[in-house]
Design a protein around this nucleic acid. Structure first.
Lengths: 153, 153
DNA sequence: GTTTCTATGTCAGGACTTTGACATAGCTGA
DNA sequence: TCAGCTATGTCAAAGTCCTGACATAGAAAC
């Protein structure tokens, strides 16, 4: 006599759950990006890092972590790799607080620009799969779900 | 004079890209599930494994891996953990091919049932954040995007 | 001024995931 | 029959990510 938890919504099996679909889509994206970036000798976390750094130069490691949705510990490892590869720079000491501003190097910008084409191609393929008039709504829904989840986390 | 790669769609910054939103939503879901499952001493991969096993008892490790969108190497590690914890059983040798059928134990079923409530609560919170009439379309769009990406991968 | 709070960076340990490689079992086609 | 092909399971190494813990710097509260 087991208690049945209230199902999230009418669904025949797990594959109709939102979580499952979300995971599937994210896994597919990750895989496609991984493959696309391999030719540019970059990993997905590294690319995400460079992209965010290009948009907001000089942000700290913690901000970078928040922007890529990982802990600052994880981001720190990636950052060190990029630093060793000469793609980003970081002062040894902070001049104000403890935050160390990170910047792209020229090489970092070049590598990012090259990789971006490959990543954009993946994104276009993904977008092409859905009716164009649904895109904005999809983006909004994803955003609402994310906010609902980590808002009260 | 840098070549600008064709942008996937009109977007002001990275946060308006589909990939970014997808990653954000997936990260939020992962975080919420992690937290919910911690009280049940299960990780997200472990829960996913148990859930799939409950729906398709006796499937092989490779099928399990495909169903949870990871490599069979990853799934193998998780499986061993579940086996050590006494939540699943696996014969030492296969009677037909090489595939080893995995089954939930009674304890595995109990733990799954307990954890399911917590996970369903997370999913309900996620669904509640979007207009209910959009849910079916959202599921379909996620599915189309995933298919488009790993279809030609 | 001192205490408390918050933010940042780092270390350590553990869990998950991936690529690459190898051996084995069954099937398929010449 | 026998050579390939596919699927499965496993090992090894590397990378990513997490929790927990600690020290430090600035801001806020008293």
């Amino acid at each position: 006599m087991e208690e049945k938890p209230a199902p999230p919504h009418a669904a025949g099996d797990v594959t109709e759950h939102v979580g499952y679909r979300l995971k599937r889509a994210a896994a597919a994206l990750r895989g496609a990006m991984d493959k696309a970036l391999r030719e540019h000798d970059l990993t997905v976390p590294q690319y995400a890092c460079l992209e965010l750094l290009d948009e907001r130069p000089g942000i700290s490691g913690s901000e970078l972590a928040r922007g890529t949705f990982v802990t600052r510990q994880s981001s720190s490892v990636v950052l060190r790799g990029l630093q060793d590869a000469g793609l980003v720079t970081r002062p040894a000491a902070a001049d104000h607080g403890r935050a160390l501003p990170v910047h792209l190097t020229g090489e970092g910008r070049r590598r990012l620009a090259a990789a971006r084409s490959a990543v954009y191609a993946v994104e276009r393929r993904m977008i092409a799969a859905i009716p164009s008039h649904r895109l904005a709504g999809l983006l909004a829904d994803l955003d609402r779900m994310a906010t609902a989840l980590d808002g009260q986390a």
